[in-house]
Design a protein around this nucleic acid. Structure first.
Length: 487
RNA sequence: GGCCCCAUGGUCAAGCGGUCAAGACGCCGCCCUCUCACGGCGGUAACAGGGGUUCGAAUCCCCUUGGGGUCACCA
């Protein structure tokens, strides 16, 4: 079979894309690309009660940000337009009617109320609810007259009474179920819209989708889809079911629970490329030990047969690592650009941002941690003088005071306030004084920041603060140490 | 509960009858070092259990246990 591979991403517009959903889109895209095929975007909005304003835009935006570019879709058209199911509403009913003629479906007039009652009864008796097929044997005349009377109805798929149905999945292998365990699922709802269960089969066929890629939660309903394909006499697509992405506690990532949506991660300062890279490796593994891959590299090497079956835990710690890797790999200028909004968020003082960016780049794993990291640059807060005392640096209050005093004239005489010059001047001073680096630089760093821990050392911080502010802060340190009785 | 799926360190995972059972994240230690971080080096830790098949099982089969999914006029 040399058909062009065609995959589709068929989200329902709910307003956000959670991580598992995005990974599905990624894999669908990758499978199309690695086979030189096409990737289609189709909007599944057959549930009129769940329509969310602007939700489709979220989908477009997310795909675009990730570089997952579709070849056909509502926004760019294509040979199978329209790509929005609500706009295809009229195409489904005739197929359902065809099924009725062939004896694979039937009209059902049972009301929601009756069904609910049935459900409760079953629950009370401790057995699983299954539609009791009350309408399966209705005569053609009765159906006709009830429809003419305006009675609402749905169309149900009629499952075989016996036998088994087997389908093949590319990752899970052959799966067989007893037909008696299959429910007569609804194909057309009483509002005239098809259910997902029906529409996806019709559209996948009509749009010539060759590889149906979706989460493994659809595994249990796939036999019903197979029966549909068979009833129509259509070719069954290649199924590729993906293992679920779960939370550390093992439960499914749920939308309403506020679990990691793509936008959340972006807002938290995760890089798109890092997210995509991590997602690619969650449930799939390459043929080597490499972990860093760009999207275009993935388009070359992705393979369905290396998708794993077992669910994988979404591990924030690992995502952080990926993010940090991408940050560290950036040029200082590029990092400065993406970090700038976050630097501005944490910076009230008027200081040059590029040196700040350079200072924090290696020390940043997620952008959102930047503001709090650079707070010491804004104002010098009162600090505990005891932080001048550091055993490993071999400093105490006396040594710190001496070092700060010694640093003043050296810094004052510096005309070109560059990091290199600062480095040279201070290291020279160290040897002049015959002390250890830390005995000078630790006190200076402390005086400049007032923090016990800072991103960047004395020299980097001095360079960022500028000459005047550096000297001012050192003087504060000197004054405070002098007035300290223990010195 | 019925049906279906899954099962290698805490996490992601390689492995597809013969390996001292990779690698990565995390964690711990050491080195580097002006704190932190980066970087370098090292360490911790796994085939869920029980039966088979086989000369030989993490790899194949069965059972048990555990986990997950699904049972809507949602997708």
């Amino acid at each position: 079979m040399s058909l062009t591979v065609r995959t589709r991403y068929a989200p329902s517009p709910t307003g956000y894309i959670h991580i598992g959903n995005l990974r599905s889109a990624l894999y669908e895209y990758l499978i199309a690309r690695v086979n030189g095929g096409q990737f289609v975007l189709r909007i599944e909005d057959t549930d009129q009660e769940r329509i969310v304003e602007g939700a489709v835009d979220v989908i477009y935006r997310t795909l675009k940000m990730c570089g997952i570019q579709h070849d056909e879709g509502p926004d760019i058209g294509g040979p199978y337009t329209p790509y929005v199911q609500s706009e295809r509403k009229d195409t489904y009913l005739p197929y359902a009617e065809e099924l009725i003629e062939k004896g694979h479906a039937y009209y059902c007039f049972c009301t929601k109320e009756r069904l609910d009652k049935l459900r409760i009864e079953c629950e009370n008796e401790g057995r699983a609810f299954r539609y009791d097929r009350r309408c399966v044997g209705l005569s053609e005349d009765e159906v006709k007259s009830r429809i003419q009377a305006g009675e609402p109805y749905v169309i149900r798929q009629k499952m075989p009474d016996e036998g088994t149905t087997t389908f093949h999945d590319s990752v899970y292998g052959d799966i067989t179920v007893d037909n008696k365990d299959l429910e007569d699922q609804i194909l057309i709802k009483s509002d005239g819209y098809p259910t997902y269960n029906f529409a996806n089969v019709i559209d996948d066929h009509l749009m010539n989708i060759t590889h149906v890629v979706r989460g493994s939660e659809y595994l249990s309903s796939t036999p019903k889809y197979n029966l549909l394909y068979e009833a129509f006499g259509w070719e069954i697509p290649t199924y590729v079911h993906l293992p679920l992405i779960v939370k550390p506690d093992g439960s499914k990532i749920s939308k309403r629970k506020g679990d990691a949506t793509f936008e959340d991660l972006i807002n938290d300062g995760y890089l798109v490329k890092a997210i995509v890279n991590y997602l690619a490796l969650l449930g799939w593994s390459p043929d080597s030990n490499r972990e860093i891959y760009s999207l275009s590299e993935l388009e070359q090497i992705f393979s369905v047969d290396r998708i794993s079956k077992s669910p994988s835990v979404f591990d924030m710690a690992k995502l952080r690592w990926f993010n940090a890797e991408y940050i560290r790999a950036m040029t200082p200028e590029a990092f400065h650009e993406i970090a700038l909004p976050w630097i501005k968020k944490g910076l009230t003082a008027d200081l040059p941002t590029l040196p700040i960016a350079r200072m924090i780049q290696r020390r940043t794993e997620v952008l959102s941690e930047i503001p709090e990291k650079i707070g010491f640059l804004n104002v010098l807060e009162d600090y505990d003088l005891n932080i001048y005392i550091h055993k490993k640096m071999k400093t105490d209050l006396k040594i710190s005071l001496d070092s700060l005093i010694a640093a003043v004239p050296v810094l004052e005489s510096l005309t070109d306030w560059s990091e290199d010059n600062l480095h040279e001047a201070l290291i020279n001073l160290v040897s002049e004084l015959g002390i250890k680096n830390g005995q000078l630089l630790w006190p200076v760093r402390t005086a400049l920041s007032g923090w016990e821990v800072t991103p960047g050392g004395a020299i980097e911080i001095a360079a960022v603060l500028g000459k005047a502010e550096t000297l001012r802060r050192i003087q504060i340190g000197i004054d405070r140490l002098k007035s300290c009785e223990q010195v």
